[in-house]
Amino acid sequence: MSERQELLSGLALTTFRLNGRFLDVADALATPVGLTAAHWQVLGAVLEAPLPVSGIARAMGITRQSVQRIADLLAAKGMVEYRPNPAHRRAKLVAPTAAGLEAVHRIDPAHAAFADRLCDTIGDVRAAAALEALRLLADTLDALEGEAQGT
């Protein structure tokens, strides 16, 4: 295997490991308020503005079907609602309800405490640099995938 192949494999394996760890952390933070990491992820995607399921899926890097299933579960729990979408008749917008917003706000203290522990451990500058590197990697993979698909 070439050095570049080893780098790609290392990036992928480390990212998979990080994803698992972040999901564990998110579950630990969300469970006390009756959510899962996936619920929190979908709710988090629509806090700023309602989005269609496909928009949430793109933003989160997960399948539209997964988001639809989670959004339906959240709607059944009264945490989100489906609203008409002026841009597309059939693709409803997912929006948080007051109960959904309240659940996310109840996570905030534990979320802030964990963020402080993480940044105290690795430092704000390193955390910001890691975020920048991860965003660059994600954007580059998106661009390379777009090139491969001819878009």
Rank of each mutant, 00 (worst) to 15 (best):
L11C: 08
G61W: 03
A130Y: 11
D124R: 06
A103D: 03
V94M: 14
L13N: 08
G100F: 03
E48S: 14
S66Q: 13
R89I: 05
V33I: 14
P84D: 15
R64N: 12
V67K: 08
E145S: 12
Q65H: 05
E81K: 12
H105V: 02
Q5N: 10
G10I: 03
R17W: 06
A12E: 06
A127Q: 04
A129P: 02
D139H: 07
Q41R: 13
V80K: 08
A30V: 01
V94Q: 10
H39E: 09
E132N: 10
R135F: 08
C119Q: 13
L7M: 12
T140H: 09
H111I: 02
S2K: 04
L23G: 02
D142R: 11
D108A: 09
A30G: 04
A110Q: 04
L51C: 10
P109N: 05
A98C: 03
M60N: 13
Q41Y: 02
L7D: 10
G146I: 00
A129V: 02
G34I: 06
G100S: 08
A38I: 00
R83G: 06
A99H: 02
A59W: 02
L101N: 11
E48I: 06
A57Y: 05
Q5S: 13
L144A: 14
R17H: 09
R21C: 08
E102P: 00
L43H: 04
V67H: 07
F22R: 10
I107D: 03
L137G: 06
T31R: 08
M1A: 15
A26M: 07
E147G: 02
A12H: 06
P32M: 12
L23D: 09
A98H: 07
P109C: 05
R64K: 14
F114S: 00
Q5P: 00
R90H: 07
D139M: 10
R4Q: 14
V53H: 08
A98N: 09
E6I: 05
S2Q: 06
E132Y: 06
A113Q: 03
A28H: 03
L131I: 08
R4K: 11
G61S: 12
E132A: 15
S2A: 11
E132C: 07
L47W: 01
L101M: 14
M60V: 03
R64Y: 00
A87P: 00
A133H: 10
D116T: 05
V80A: 14
A75Q: 11
A143W: 01
A91K: 13
T15R: 08
Y82A: 09
L73V: 06
A98S: 10
I122C: 14
A127D: 04
A133K: 12
A129Y: 05
A130L: 15
G20V: 01
L74N: 09
A37R: 03
A91R: 14
Q41V: 01
H88K: 15
R21N: 11
R83W: 07
L23Y: 01
G146V: 01
L144I: 05
Y82K: 10
M79T: 00
A130R: 07
H111D: 04
G78K: 09
I56P: 04
T36P: 04
